[in-house]
Computed example of a mutant assay.
Amino acid sequence: MPAMPRYLPSSTRLPGVLWQRSSHSTGMNNCVETARPGSGPWAGLLAVRDSKNTSGPALLFAPAAWEGFIGALR
């Protein structure tokens, strides 16, 4: 089984996903946005992108990896 990519070179390769901005983001867009692709090869993963560059790359995380990251920040 081939390894899943860790990022997409452009978040526009995730058409139709609903991006959600962090509630901690300010009006200056200095935070991240997340989306959960519901279908296709990235279904079940979490996509994360920079809110300042919405057409830029998106990092892809398994849900457990993202939860571990957030837990470590707390």
Rank of each mutant, 00 (worst) to 15 (best):
A35K: 11
A47D: 02
S55I: 04
S23T: 15
S22H: 08
P57K: 00
R21D: 12
L14Q: 01
E33K: 06
N30F: 05
G56W: 02
G38D: 12
A47T: 12
S11Y: 00
L73E: 12
P2L: 11
S23Y: 06
D50W: 10
P2F: 06
N30L: 11
V48M: 15
G27M: 10
P37C: 13
E33W: 09
V32L: 15
D50A: 07
K52D: 10
Q20N: 05
S11C: 04
A72E: 09
S51R: 08
L8R: 00
A47I: 02
T12S: 03
A3D: 13
L73W: 09
S51T: 11
R6I: 03
A72F: 10
Q20T: 14
I70F: 05
V17H: 02
L14R: 00
A62F: 08
G71V: 04
A64V: 11
L45T: 06
P2E: 07
I70A: 14
L73Y: 07
G38A: 15
G56K: 03
F69W: 14
F69V: 13
A3S: 13
A3T: 10
A65V: 15
Q20G: 03
W19I: 02
R21E: 13
V32W: 12
A72C: 06
R49P: 04
L73T: 07
G68L: 06
R74C: 08
Q20W: 08
G27F: 11
S39C: 10
T54Y: 00
A58T: 05
L73D: 06
K52M: 09
P41V: 02
C31I: 05
R36G: 06
A65L: 10
A62S: 05
A65F: 02
V17M: 04
T12N: 01
G27Y: 05
M28C: 07
S51H: 09
P5Q: 02
R49G: 08
K52W: 07
N53R: 14
T26S: 15
A3E: 13
H24L: 15
W19N: 04
T26D: 14
S23M: 03
L14A: 01
T34F: 12
G38S: 14
R13H: 00
S23E: 07
P63I: 09
S39L: 04
T12Q: 03
P63F: 10
G40W: 02
R21I: 09
F61W: 15
I70H: 06
M28H: 13
R74K: 14
Q20A: 12
T54F: 00
T34M: 15
G16H: 02
H24R: 15
A65H: 12
G56E: 01
A62H: 13
R21C: 08
A3P: 11
C31P: 02
G40E: 02
A62R: 14
P57V: 01
V32I: 15
L45C: 08
Y7P: 01
W42C: 12
Y7K: 03
Q20D: 05
M28L: 13
S11V: 01
P37T: 12
E33M: 14
P5W: 01
A35G: 08
W66I: 04
A72D: 11
W66N: 05
G44T: 06
V32M: 12
G71K: 10
